[in-house]
Amino acid sequence: MRSSRPASRPARASIARVMAIPTLLVLGSISGLVLGLTGDGLPDLLAWGLLSIPIILSMIAFVRRG
C-alpha cells in the first residue's frame, strides 16, 4: 500500500491542457466584445451568447460544487 501519496491525487496535467478552457473563454469573450461593436441584430446576439458563456459556466460550477 502506497501511503506516501493520497490515493485521490490525480496526475498533473500539462499547462497547455489546464489553460485550454481559459484560453477559449478569453478568446470567446473578446470576440463577443468586438462583435457587438460591428452592428445591431445578429452581431449583438453573438456578443450576448459569447459573453454569457463565462457566466453560465460559473453558475454550473456553483451548482455542482462539493
Binding site: R9, A13, I15, I21, P22, L57, I60, R64, R65
Partner: peptide
C-alpha cells in the same frame, strides 16, 4: 493571477469548487 492559476490547477479539473 493567470500565471499562478496554471500550475495550481494542474491536478484539478476546470471549474472545481472544493467545499469539504
Amino acid at each position: 493571477g493567470v500565471v499562478l492559476y496554471a500550475p495550481f490547477m494542474r491536478r484539478l479539473p476546470f471549474g472545481t469548487l472544493r467545499t469539504s
